[in-house]
Design a protein around this nucleic acid. Structure first.
Lengths: 261, 261
DNA sequence: GAAGTTAGTGTCATTATGACACTAATGCAA
DNA sequence: TTGCATTAGTGTCATAATGACACTAACTTC
C-alpha cells in the first residue's frame, strides 16, 4: 500500500473523532452564470501538485467519508468546505447510492489505496445537492483536491466512481423541484432580468418556454420586485432588473405545486 | 455481551457474505383497508417467544444491516422478506438517516447488544417505502420479529430508535407523491369503488375532497375502467366497481404533475 | 444609419377549477 | 312494511389558468 496523502485540513481535525469507513457523502453543487447550468467538480490530487499530466487527472464530485460523531448534513457541509472552501450553503439530501460495484475502476481503487486506511471497505454514499450563486462562491481547492472548478452540466466528462450517476440523479431532483416550487433565489445574483430567469428555467427543465406566458406566470406569484434600474452595456435593448422578494419567496416554497410549465 | 439470537433465516445465509455493521435499511410498508392507512410494524423478539410482557414489547419498522455484496434495493427486499415474509414488492428509497444519536434509548442499546456482533457501531440507515394491498400480502413474522402486523398510521405509538421520524418522512414523501401522480393501484384491491379511492386520497393527504370534483378529475385521466358489477351486501346504495387501466396508469406515472387537490 | 440582438407587451379561445344540493338504492330496525 | 340511516351518483356556473401567437422598442456595433 502506498503512503497516504498529507491530510492536514480542517475536516481531519481530531475533533471529529473516528472516520466511518463505510459511509460517505457526495455534494452536487449547481451554479448558473447566465449562460448555462454548471456543477462544481474537483480534481484528485493535492492543490499544488503539478506532477500528473492532464490526461491522468480525474474529475469527481466533492465527497468523503463521514465521521462517527457528526450527522449526515454536517458531514456534507464539512466535506464541501474541506475540498472547495464553500461554506454556509444549504445542502439538501437527495438519495443514497450503495451499489457494491460503484467502486470498480482500477483508477479509483488505486486512488483509494493511496487515500484510505481501509481502501477495500464497501462504501455507501449519501448524495446532497445545492444551488448557489456562481459569483458569490469562489471555490478554492484544498485537502485532496488539486482544483475545484465549475463545469457546464451538459459537458461533464466521465467522473470517478459512480459520480455521473449521482449527478444525473441530482439533476433529475432539481428538475422536479423546479416544476413544483419557485427556484432561482439561490442561483441568481441579487439583480437579474426576466430573460436570465427564463434561461435558468429552460436550462434546468431542458425545454424552451414561451416568453410571454413565462412572464405572466412568474409575475403572478408576486415573488419578484421590479427595480428602477436597467441593464447596462448590453448590445441590445437593456432589460429591467428585478430582485426576489424573499419574504414572499419563502412563503411559496413548499406550498405550491405545479409551479411552472 | 449476551448471546446473539438464533439467526437462522434466509437473510443470514452465508451466500450473502459479510454484514456491514454501519449501514442498515428500514422499510415503511403502507397498506389500506378501506378504513384507514396502515403501516406494517414488527415486534422485537423471536416469533414464538411469549416470555416478555406486552408492556415491554417494542414496535419497530422492519429493518436490518446490509450485506457487503448486495445493493441497497436488494437489502431492503431481503430484510423485508426475512422479517415479514413479504416479497415481490416494489420498494422505493426515500431518504437516509444518520444522526449519531439515533440510537440512544437504553432499551434499543440493550437489544443491539443481544443482536449484533458490533452493537456500538454507528449506523446510518436508508429508508424505503412501499404501498401494498392489505388483502394481498399477509405478513408472517420470522427471524427476530415476534410479530408483524398492520397498525393504523394515525395511532402508531413510540417506536424503537428513530423509527417514528422515519415513518413521518415516508408519509410526507407519500403525500407529495399523491399530489403529483396517480396512486392507488398498489394499495387498492383489483375492484374498488370511487368512494374507496377518495377515502384513500383523503387519508393520505389528510384533507377532505369534494366528491364531484374528485370524480371529475379522476375520471378525466382515463386510468379507471368502469365495470358492470356493483358492490354487494352494503347497507346503502351499492356503488359501481372500477379497476385500474394499468396501461394508462403506467403512462401517467412520472408524467403528470399537480395531479389532485 | 443599417443590421443585429434582446426586451417588452395583449388577446382570445380553450380548459381547469371550485363551490354547491338534491335524488337513488340498499340494509336494517322498529 | 315502513321509514331511517347511509352512501352513491349526478350538472351547472362563474372564475381562473393555460397556451398559442407577432409585432414594436431600445440598445450596440459596424
Amino acid at each position: 500500500m502506498q503512503e497516504r496523502l498529507n491530510t492536514s485540513m480542517p475536516g481531519f481535525s481530531p475533533l471529529h473523532g473516528k472516520l466511518n469507513p463505510h459511509v460517505s457523502v457526495d455534494c452536487v453543487i449547481f451554479g448558473f452564470d447566465f449562460e448555462e447550468l454548471k456543477v462544481l467538480l474537483i480534481e484528485r490530487g493535492l492543490p499544488d501538485d503539478q506532477s500528473t499530466s492532464d490526461q491522468q487527472r480525474t474529475l469527481m464530485l466533492p465527497g468523503d467519508l463521514i465521521y462517527d460523531n457528526e450527522n449526515l448534513d454536517q458531514s456534507a457541509m464539512r466535506v464541501l468546505k474541506a475540498l472547495t472552501s464553500l461554506e454556509n450553503i444549504y445542502l439538501e439530501q437527495f438519495a443514497a447510492f450503495g451499489d457494491p460495484s460503484r467502486v470498480t475502476k482500477e483508477e479509483d481503487l488505486a486512488w483509494l489505496r493511496s487515500m484510505r486506511s481501509d481502501p477495500d471497505a464497501r462504501v455507501v454514499t449519501v448524495g446532497y445537492y445545492s444551488l448557489v450563486r456562481l459569483d458569490k462562491f469562489k471555490p478554492a481547492p484544498a485537502y485532496y483536491a488539486r482544483s475545484a472548478e465549475w463545469y457546464p452540466v451538459s459537458q461533464v466528462p466521465e467522473l470517478a466512481f459512480d459520480h455521473n450517476e449521482i449527478l444525473t440523479a441530482a439533476l433529475s431532483r432539481l428538475k422536479n423541484k423546479a416544476r413544483v416550487e419557485p427556484i432561482g433565489f439561490e442561483l441568481l445574483p441579487q439583480k437579474f432580468t426576466l430573460g436570465h430567469l427564463q434561461k435558468l428555467y429552460e436550462d434546468i427543465l431542458g425545454a424552451s418556454l414561451d416568453k410571454r406566458n413565462f412572464r405572466r406566470k412568474i409575475m403572478s406569484r408576486g415573488i419578484l420586485l421590479e427595480l428602477e434600474e436597467k441593464q447596462q452595456g448590453v448590445p441590445h435593448k437593456p432589460a429591467k432588473l428585478y430582485q426576489f422578494n424573499s419574504a414572499e419567496y419563502e412563503k411559496l416554497k413548499g406550498n405550491s405545486f405545479d409551479f411552472l410549465l
